[in-house]
Design a protein around this nucleic acid. Structure first.
Length: 326
DNA sequence: GAGTTTGAAACT
DNA sequence: CAGTTTCAAACTC
């Protein structure tokens, strides 16, 4: 279980009210020797907690070790496969929490949009490891919905909750409102191994089965669409000339059933690159002579994406060779 | 702050 | 493996 104690630095709930819990656990029945206890589950001793009859401390090391062994006996992966000796090591504890998280959630009612959901709580997208129902914590849309329930979103940028697919054509959360480094983090997130992206199917690109050194264009498309739509949303407030890419823009998003790079893909990339270049070419507010921070974020993301497209095109042109490295 | 809801863990 | 119970945190009023 993900340590609720991690919320110490993020005690804001849905209404922006400071959470009642400040630190540690508040176990009453479990003596902090079961996985109900977040301290115990995280492999750390209770410290400055509000728990009752706590045995998760040095004074009760015997009982604690017995509890650990009992758990491991039933489930060797109870602590992510690590031996009990790890339980003092905070880094290992963090790893354990990530390991527990990677098992995924099983939410039924909350659409994985409440902190009841461990994925949501960890600011991670649900993956195929999850067994949740009606999950909306998917793709960049998860970030959108996260903001609807209070994840550091500027107040004027919140939009109403919507079903996942509907959101592609309506009020997206601005990129600037996404968690810091959300997009780049998403690409490297432990949950990203198999994100529940709203795509019809996954397919190998480049018509080969070599190790995936080239990012899935569909995944990149998902992220770019979020960035594009957020830029569009901002455009209404700040700039009518922002780049706007529609998910149904067939000219940009050729659906290749063959699963290989086709000429149209290359042309689409070229057009995207032109759009991005045109969008951010010396665009400085004449009034303030400075770029707003949102624009800088978008610019950084889109320029990175543009560079990826350059490389993607390069790979595409080299189709048929073994040169797939970026 | 009390009561309810929720989902994970534990149990059968 | 499935269903139920227990538990603690999130959430509502």
């Amino acid at each position: 279980m993900l340590s609720r104690g991690e919320r110490e630095g993020n005690n804001t709930d849905q209404e922006g009210v400071t959470g009642r819990k400040q630190k540690g656990c508040r176990c009453r029945q479990s003596k902090c020797l079961k996985l109900y206890c977040d301290c115990f589950a995280s492999g750390v001793l209770c410290n400055d907690c509000d728990c009752a009859a706590c045995h998760n401390n040095t004074d009760n090391s015997f009982a604690r070790e017995a509890a650990v062994l009992n758990l491991l006996d039933r489930n060797p992966n109870a602590f992510n496969g690590k031996p009990p000796s790890f339980l003092i090591n905070k880094q290992a504890a963090t790893d354990t929490k990530l390991g527990l998280l990677s098992r995924g959630c099983k939410c039924k009612r909350t659409k994985c949009l409440k902190k009841y959901c461990e994925c949501f709580q960890a600011n991670a997208l649900c993956s195929d490891n999850c067994k949740c129902i009606n999950c909306e914590n998917v793709s960049a849309l998860g970030a959108t919905n996260r903001h609807n329930v209070g994840f550091n979103t500027p107040d004027n940028l919140i939009c109403a909750p919507q079903s996942s697919l509907q959101q592609w054509n309506s009020c997206p959360a601005p990129l600037s409102s996404m968690p810091d480094n959300y997009i780049l983090d998403s690409l490297e997130s432990p949950m990203y191994s198999s994100p529940k992206l709203p795509y019809k199917k996954k397919r190998s690109r480049l018509g080969c089965n070599t190790p995936k050194l080239v990012p899935d264009l569909g995944d990149l498309r998902s992220l770019l669409l979020a960035a594009s739509e957020s830029a569009t949303a901002n455009a209404g407030l700040q700039d009518k000339n922002r780049i706007c890419i529609k998910p149904d823009d067939k000219e940009l998003w050729n659906e290749s059933e063959s699963g290989i790079v086709e000429e149209e893909d290359i042309q689409s990339c070229g057009r995207l690159i032109q759009l991005i270049d045109a969008q951010y070419n010396d665009e400085v507010d004449p009034q303030t002579k400075t770029r707003d921070i949102y624009m800088e974020q978008e610019r950084a993301v889109l320029e990175t994406f543009r560079d990826c497209l350059h490389k993607y095109m390069k790979v595409g042109f080299m189709k048929g060779t073994n040169y797939y490295h970026f």
